[in-house]
Each structure stands twice: as structure tokens, then as C-alpha cells.
């Protein structure tokens, strides 16, 4: 007899009801299935109305984040066999407004991401014919870990500070600010720090640390935020005492 597994999916269909509801799906199970395979099976074979985001299937695109048995994880990187409970509960990422089923509204994060200017800022751009900006492996190591962020928003779902106050800039945006501030090619450190020490910036983080625990790319946003507090303090001092 073929093995089966039960998925309990939190659904929200605004065209039918203002309230979310849970729906159970019993589907065939194999050892090599990840949660995303199960969702795709449901969508293809059982219920085509189920909405979920996905793309790469290999932990790169960051689209398939969901609450799986209460923990934010990438559906493509979570094997069903790793989950101990009999029924696998899949819900949309916590703390975000839900558009439909497992699809959340990412607009808030996209705006915050732009606020930290996650690109190389140069006072004067070197012409192309003068060649590239060189870096030593040691210089790359300073920001390599944070550059792995795939904007999957799993850290935001794990962050109770963001859950209580969505004004908070949040783990990924600040980690990316750190990534560019640590880049030897960048000259926009102070500009970013102005935003980071401002309202709802690094000081709102109380170091719960769960963002770093759940991060599928081991970016350690919690560490990056704490490490920014010292240059952040210096930045505030510099603005208070401009001639320092």
C-alpha cells in the first residue's frame, strides 16, 4: 500500500470569506518529498485553487517561505521526513498581511530594503576603462556571510519585535545594510547609518536571536544588527559633535 501524508493548510480566500480557514489534504508520500513537492502535488492534482509562491526549488530564490509546523522555513528545503508530527501544518509566513492562502504581501519589506540602500555607493564612480574594484579574500570574508541573504522573509516571521511593531526595519534589511557597510568598495557607510540609528532602526532590536536560528542561509542577522550598534553610536556622536 502506498504511503500517505496529511497536510493541514491555512487558507485565505478573500473572494469567499474575510476569515482564514484550515483545509486538510491527504496525499501520496515518498521519502524524498519536501513540503514544496507536497504543495505542488496538491495544486496540480487535488485542488488548483491553492495559492503558493515558488520558483527555484533549491533554496536560492527565497519564494517558498511558510510557517511549517509553527516554524518559518523554506518549503523547498524542508523534507517531510524531518517533521515529526503526524500532520504537517503549513501556514503563511507570520507577521505579514496575507493576500491569498500562502501568498503574503511583501511590499513593506521591499520599501524597507530600498531605505537601507543595498547597493555600492561611490562618491565618484570610476570609469569602466579604469578597471574593476579589487578586493582581497579577507575583505570579502568581512561581508560574505551577510551577502548570502535571499530575501525570503523567514527572519521577519521569526522576529517578535517586527510582529509587535511592523515599523521596525527588521533583520534582513539591517543585515544587508551591514553587508554593504562592510564592503571595502563602498563609501555610503554614514548614509546608511543615518537610517539605521533613526526611528525603528537597530535600537529596536532586543536581540531575541531567533532570526539567526531560522535563517536558511546562515546569514546571522541578529549578530549583524548588534555589530552595527557600535558604529551606529559613533555616527550619532559624530552628528552631535560635527567637528569630532
Amino acid at each position: 500500500m502506498a504511503l500517505e501524508i496529511v497536510l493541514l493548510v491555512k487558507r485565505f480566500r478573500p473572494e469567499l470569506s474575510k476569515e482564514p480557514f484550515y483545509q486538510e489534504y491527504q496525499i501520496p508520500y515518498t521519502e524524498d518529498m519536501v513540503v514544496l513537492d507536497a504543495l505542488n502535488y496538491i495544486n496540480d492534482e487535488v485542488d488548483s485553487t491553492l495559492a503558493h509562491r515558488w520558483s527555484c526549488r533549491m533554496g536560492i530564490c527565497g519564494s517558498c517561505g511558510a510557517m511549517i509546523n509553527g516554524t518559518p522555513r523554506l518549503a523547498c528545503a524542508t523534507f517531510l521526513r524531518q517533521l515529526t508530527r503526524g500532520i504537517v501544518e503549513v501556514e503563511p509566513l507570520d507577521h505579514f498581511p496575507v493576500i491569498k492562502d500562502l501568498v503574503v504581501d511583501m511590499e513593506d519589506f521591499m520599501q524597507k530594503l530600498a531605505e537601507v540602500m543595498p547597493w555600492l555607493i561611490r562618491e565618484k564612480i570610476k570609469p569602466l576603462d579604469r578597471g574593476e574594484y579589487f578586493q582581497t579574500p579577507g575583505q570579502i570574508r568581512l561581508y560574505g556571510q551577510q551577502s548570502m541573504c535571499i530575501n525570503c522573509l523567514i527572519c521577519y516571521s521569526a522576529c517578535p519585535v517586527y510582529g509587535l511593531d511592523s515599523e521596525f526595519l527588521g533583520p534582513a534589511a539591517i543585515a544587508l545594510a551591514y553587508r554593504y557597510n562592510m564592503d571595502s568598495r563602498d563609501q555610503g557607510r554614514e548614509k546608511r547609518l543615518s537610517r539605521l540609528v533613526g526611528k525603528s532602526g537597530v535600537w529596536d532590536c532586543t536581540y531575541v536571536g531567533e532570526c539567526s536560528v531560522v535563517c536558511p542561509k546562515d546569514v546571522d542577522p541578529a549578530g549583524a544588527i548588534q555589530r552595527l550598534k557600535f558604529p551606529g553610536s559613533l555616527h550619532v556622536l559624530k552628528t552631535l559633535l560635527p567637528r569630532l
Binding site: 509553527g70 505579514f96 498581511p97 517578535p160
Partner: peptide, 29 residues
């Protein structure tokens, strides 16, 4: 302008009982 209806998820007051790390954090506070 966005006209999509969304469902806003609220954090329950018992969020810190969800996992041992949240509880450890609350004890630290």
C-alpha cells in the same frame, strides 16, 4: 492603488510560549 483584500495576522499574547528560545529570551528580560 492596491485593491486586494488582505488578512492581517496578529501575534497572539502567548507568542513567547511557542518555542523554548522565545521563553529563554523572555526569562532574560
Amino acid at each position: 492603488e492596491k485593491k486586494t483584500a488582505t488578512y492581517v495576522q496578529k501575534m497572539p499574547a502567548s507568542w513567547w510560549l511557542r518555542n523554548p528560545r522565545y521563553l529563554a529570551y523572555m526569562l532574560r528580560e
